[in-house]
Design a protein around this nucleic acid. Structure first.
Lengths: 133, 133
DNA sequence: TACCGTTATATTTTAGAATATATAACGAAA
DNA sequence: TTTCGTTATATATTCTAAAATATAACGGTA
């Protein structure tokens, strides 16, 4: 059996939600990983890294996200500056002008984040069901 | 004994976090309540409602939050427009120029949100401990 | 009636973020 | 050596969200 969490939601008071259409109410949230209290890894970097992995280029990844190259580069730079080893390996020059790949650690972190988010979704679903009684 | 949650975090791969100083890494997030997919209630409204309750005035509450009255009024207006019954009862005129109070439902919602956030904090703590192994 | 501080609303101004634009450097291949 | 598309970086411009400012209305009280 899977381990369980200690935290549990007590029933909310019966009339708490009367003043809102219950089926339209849901708990939701955002989730990220911090380093030294600074946001380090979240949904934005996840998507960007995936697209870099897919396209082999920061440039093309940014375009697919409708994001300026500068902003994308900033995200990459922050990731690489924070991690002890670069998460995105960039190259300039060459017949294709260069390109970028993501490290194995970056791939593992993406998977980890996905699993973490899935557990968070489970949490949210439980809370939402409880709200709707 | 308190009820338990079904979701559980599997151990993360042993070398996933090697490339970051472990004690500096933490899971964190933001949490809110949606109505029809729109953010309805979160940390901002919570603090504002508390200060309105405390000061009896949207104006003074906004000042204590270093927030413009316009923005504070927008939050109040959104809350009142979404809920079937107003969460903030406003009055104009009178010897003190008017003022605002919050409904019992608003107070109950604040308490509910606090408890929800506490459970979320528990979730985050568990995940953070697991990251740090 | 005059006064008060608030709610309510519109308009103007400011500040910051995002984008757009420009340019240099890079290096493999033809 | 020239060509290519990319990385890397700086600067300029545009957009947008926030704040600042202004003003009317309100209604108890003196």
């Amino acid at each position: 059996m899977s381990p369980t969490r200690k935290t549990a939601a007590p029933p909310s008071s019966p009339d708490l939600w009367e003043f809102l259409p219950l089926t339209e109410v849901a708990a939701n949230g955002s989730l990220w990983i911090e380093h030294q209290g600074q946001r380090f890894f979240g949904p934005g970097p996840v998507q960007l890294l995936e697209l870099i992995d897919e396209t082999g280029s920061i440039n093309q990844a940014a375009k697919k996200m409708d994001m300026s190259y500068k902003k994308a580069w900033g995200i990459v730079n922050n990731l690489n500056a924070t991690a002890l080893r670069p998460m995105v390996i960039t190259a300039t020059g060459g017949q294709k002008g260069g390109g970028s790949t993501i490290s194995a650690e970056a791939k593992a972190l993406i998977i980890y984040y996905r699993e973490l988010r899935a557990r968070f979704n489970q949490f949210l679903e439980t809370e939402t069901i409880r709200i709707r009684k």
